[in-house]
Computed example of a mutant assay.
Amino acid sequence: QVAAAPPSMAAPPDPQFVLRGTQSAVHALHFWGGAQEQGHQLLLSGSLSGLVHIWSLQTRRAIATLDGHGGQCVIWLQTLPQGQQLLSQGRDLLCLWDLAEGRNAVVDSVGLESVGFCRGSILARGQQRWMLAVPGGGSDEIQILEMPSKTSVCTLKPEADAKPGMPMCLELWQTDSSPRPCLLAGYEDGSVALWDVSERKVCSRIACHTEPVMGLDFDSQKARGVSGSAEKALAVWSLDEQQALQVRGKHELTNPGISDVKIRPDRKILATAGWDHRVRVFHWRTLKPLAVLAFHSAVVHCVAFAADGLLAAGSRDHRISIWSLYPRS
């Protein structure tokens, strides 16, 4: 029984195509822009069974399977700025893969002391170096590493009187005007905090949700972010020039539970992965609902946008749906 779409919304489209073959729930997706297979980009998926699949969007088949997580769920995938390397995060291990010329080999790894589901984040620091944020050893800690040397930069631990619980999602970024890295972290108590990594201090913390923050994304050009949680609302917040976060508004959802939220690279639209099996698409500036993508038959765990605007969604139903919506103008 699917409720009729409101009059303002056209009937939802069908996926452009569907990728099958993970044989396991899909928990992570990432478009690999640097790798062109006959001019077509590739899609990476991470599954509950611990495998990473590399998909050709041309043949719609997996062209390689990476097995480095010993059966532990893969929750985050990120290709590195220099192109031919991949980070994959399992429950207790982060693997660095060399994907050049089909080598597909683990060349390094970082043991994780956390057993949560908090995805890592990276920030390029020049051609060959990058900064990595991952959940830390203490349940409320975040560890910052310099990569690929794996040198510990610092551990970010909340102030003594703050009890935010575990970090649930992380986003490293820096402004064009300042070399100082910042970190946005969503926490178990529903708060979002902005850390100054160099100073190891929280610049600002806001209560966004009454439930753990499951996903967040940040538009550094508009200094505006969005987060989703187990509750029935998206929170939109902004960052002023004094590094203070402010809640801008809540957008009520039809059903509770957001696993992931992503802003498209052109900052026009936003997609959410829902516990209600739906992918919802919103206009980013106004948060007007644009589409409800009802294809999956179980929780949608992750969404990802390609540079050209293609949208992928991964679900507990073992399928990955690929959508072409609102073409980039």
Rank of each mutant, 00 (worst) to 15 (best):
R319N: 13
N255A: 12
G190S: 07
R224T: 15
L253R: 04
Q127D: 05
L216T: 01
H301Q: 15
G190P: 03
W55A: 02
K163E: 07
R129S: 11
G274W: 10
G314Y: 07
T65D: 07
L99S: 01
P158A: 09
R60Y: 13
Y326W: 09
C169Y: 12
L183N: 00
I322R: 02
D317S: 02
H27V: 00
S152C: 05
G46T: 01
R267I: 13
A162S: 09
I263W: 12
V202K: 05
G90P: 09
G71R: 04
G215R: 06
L325P: 03
Q128H: 08
A5P: 04
M147P: 04
Q41C: 15
E252I: 11
D276A: 04
K222I: 12
P135V: 15
A306P: 02
S198D: 12
C182E: 03
A100T: 06
S204K: 04
C203Q: 13
E141Y: 14
R60V: 04
A100L: 10
E101G: 09
G90R: 14
K250V: 13
M9C: 04
R280M: 13
P15W: 11
E171V: 09
A62S: 13
F17C: 00
A235I: 14
L44R: 01
V106W: 09
W32S: 02
G68A: 15
W97I: 10
H69K: 10
H301E: 15
L145D: 11
F295S: 01
A64M: 05
S315M: 05
A124K: 02
E231L: 04
G70M: 14
G309A: 01
L145H: 13
L112V: 02
L66G: 00
S324F: 14
S204R: 06
R316Y: 08
L311I: 08
S178T: 11
G215M: 06
I63Q: 00
C154E: 03
I263K: 00
S8N: 06
G186F: 03
S178L: 07
D189Q: 05
H277F: 11
H277P: 00
